[in-house]
């Protein structure tokens, strides 16, 4: 345990150092992360106003709250491993990673957390600006705020494990960009980033609740905003736990096969 703490501490320190080298590109990424929810926020508040003040229970102010929280949750849960893996395999970096006596996923977790921490310096001011510009309306309850924390952690874990597993597709296909695009489109839509799931047609909403994407972003956002009942919140947390377990099992299985394939084919 002590060893792992020290490993993560060292990995985090190095990852922060590395992130600080990429201040500019990191900040540009952040502009994208801020712009996306702002665009949808503007669209949906306009729709709400033109519909006489509300759409499916969302007013311009609750839309503002939804998208501001979503911006933070999306920032804290997103990963870039799917973009990275093809490059790693092609450049032979994976060979080195395989020859170290530590699983490569740990360094990815550390790098992800480091980036999130460094970029909070950009996200916090953005949050303040959006707050003043869009005047969000919150109905926070003590129990939902408290449950939000584990829900957010599980969302991070779920998204990280799912995307790390998908990234392993690069062991079987040399060009994974097209497949990644399908995932990103589905995730964008079914996680509640384009519109809150409540605004989707009923059948699509059911589908979203049956797939993992909603539990990566939409669920913790709705939980914090008090959009879901205590029963639904409990169901949501259970669903998150189940999906995390499924992804962890999948990752173990796929990783073993990916490495076996890599060592059969070479690079």
């Amino acid at each position: 345990m002590r060893h792992w703490l020290e490993t993560y501490r060292a990995f985090l320190r190095i990852a922060v150092l590395e992130q600080l080298q990429y201040r500019a590109s990191g900040a540009i990424w952040m502009i994208g992360s801020v712009l996306e929810p702002v665009v949808f926020l503007v669209v949906w508040s306009t729709v709400a106003r033109s519909q006489g003040g509300a759409v499916a229970g969302f007013t311009a102010q609750t839309f503002a709250a939804y998208y501001i929280v979503l911006m933070m949750v999306n920032h804290l849960t997103f990963t870039w491993v799917m973009h990275d893996f093809q490059f790693r395999v092609q450049m032979g970096q994976l060979s080195f990673a395989l020859l170290r006596p530590v699983h490569p996923i740990h360094e990815d977790v550390a790098a992800n957390v480091a980036y999130k921490l460094v970029m909070l310096t950009v996200m916090m001011p953005a949050l303040v600006v959006l707050w003043y510009a869009f005047e969000p309306e919150f109905a926070l309850a003590a129990w939902s705020t408290a449950t939000f924390v584990p829900a957010l952690l599980l969302a991070f874990l779920l998204r990280f494990l799912a995307e790390w597993t998908l990234a392993l597709a690069t062991f079987w296909m040399t060009r994974v960009t097209a497949m990644n695009q399908i995932y990103f489109s589905l995730q964008m839509f079914l996680a509640g980033r384009v519109a809150p799931i409540a605004l989707l047609p009923a059948w699509l909403g059911d589908l979203a609740h049956g797939l993992p994407f909603y539990y990566m972003v939409g669920f913790p956002v709705e939980l914090l905003l008090g959009k879901i009942s205590a029963d639904a919140a409990l169901d949501g947390l259970m669903a998150q736990l189940v999906w995390v377990a499924v992804m962890a099992a999948l990752i173990a299985l796929v990783w073993r096969r990916a490495v076996a394939r890599f060592s059969a084919v070479g690079s």
Binding site: E6, A10, F11, I14, L17, E18, Y22, P101, V102
Partner: peptide, 15 residues
């Protein structure tokens, strides 16, 4: 992108 010594330190914990 980072100083050599930091890559070395990474190996210290890995090994």
């Amino acid at each position: 992108d980072i100083p050599v010594i930091d890559s070395f330190d990474r190996n210290r914990v890995i090994y």
